[in-house]
Simulated scan of single mutants.
Amino acid sequence: MAPRKLIVEADGGSRGNPGPAGYGAVVRDGDTGLIVAEAAEFIGRATNNVAEYRGLIAGLRAARELDPDAEVDVRMDSKLVVEQMSGRWKIKHPDMQPLAAEARTVLPRSRVSYRWIPREQNKDADRLANEAMDAGQAGRAWEPRARPAAAQVTEVAAEPLAAPAAPKAGWAAPADLGTPTTFVLLRHGETPLTPEKRFSGSGGSDPALSEKGRWQAERAAEAFAARGTVEAVVSSPMRRTRETAGAVAARLGLEVRIEEGLRELDFGAWEGLSFAEVQQKYPQDLDAWLGSAKARPTGGSESFTNLTHRVGVARDKILARYPGRTVLVVSHVSPIKTLVRLALGAPPDSVYRMELSAASLCAVQYYRDGNASVRLLNDTSHLR
């Protein structure tokens, strides 16, 4: 059977260059021309070119979500991106190089072609980019517009980033896929809020490690020093993760690279409260949050859908930077559970069925064909 054909139209814009920026992308069925997926996002302050590359990456991911085996025809009105991704122009700007590398990891190069189109033929992607910028400058996240069922549109925003396709290799990956990239996922050590099981996200007090948390970080450092397998350390920007990552990196003689996308979910008004307290004060909001990945904590800026998007972007950036290497990724409960969920291809509510202890370890391996394999979950043996 011939592979499915999909068309990706992507665009990005910046109001100031650099300035407030956003991207938009649509995926069309190659036979009917109908839009079958949309994606858009406000990305903060950036240049036009950065926004255009981000739109390309989002469009490719949306196509992969629809059919990881499809042949994809990318159409953009950015001659720069088209020529660079086609290999005809060199990529000299340091901001463009990692984005181009990231785009190339989404789908095999042999299944993606690039074509320049006039701006008037890229109106849908341009519209979405402007919608995203309008929403971002108004302090809102972009939301897809309601469409009638007859439009046959699958809204990507409900699950903006797919996991790599479920492993097809069984117990082991084929030898010709080369060395996988391994993420060793380390949850930070305890803070004063951890044993009380209080919500502690990116919108709260940003607590430091407690005495026990520092002890846990040192035990993790000893374990990694004994194994000698970690080649790079990447951390969430929050204090508790930086302290945990710093303890390990110091023992290994490595630097800590900060990745903003690994920060914890913003829990808004729930920050510092226990689950029981949230249930008492905000019962309807809590029920909605537990029932839908699109729902946000009371006063919070993010849903699990939003978090999934940024964690997926962070994942792909790390994969592009450290191919075939073992990377220690120090993060929080929600991002780590999300990485595991995406690797398994599990539904969003599966994050509520995972236990992650303080300073616990998980491991995921990623292969060049896009498959992933979960190798470890909630291991605390190094703390005994």
Rank of each mutant, 00 (worst) to 15 (best):
E102V: 02
T326R: 09
L319M: 12
S334Q: 12
A162M: 05
E243W: 06
D316N: 07
D379N: 14
T191R: 04
F224G: 12
V311H: 07
N378G: 10
L319C: 13
Q137I: 14
I7F: 03
M133E: 10
G345I: 07
E302P: 15
A10Q: 10
Q97L: 13
H332G: 04
V36E: 01
Y53S: 00
L377Y: 10
A245L: 09
V112Q: 00
L128R: 07
L265K: 00
I117A: 04
M85F: 03
A346Y: 05
A151G: 13
T32V: 02
R341A: 01
G19W: 05
A346S: 10
E102Q: 07
L262S: 01
G44I: 05
A70V: 05
N371T: 14
V82A: 00
F267G: 02
A320W: 06
R375K: 06
R28P: 02
D124N: 12
C362H: 00
G299V: 08
S331W: 01
L383P: 00
D73E: 13
L209K: 05
V50T: 06
E255D: 15
A132Q: 12
D134F: 07
A363M: 10
L209Y: 03
E259F: 11
G12V: 00
R214K: 15
P160C: 09
K5P: 01
K123M: 13
E9W: 05
A21P: 04
V234P: 04
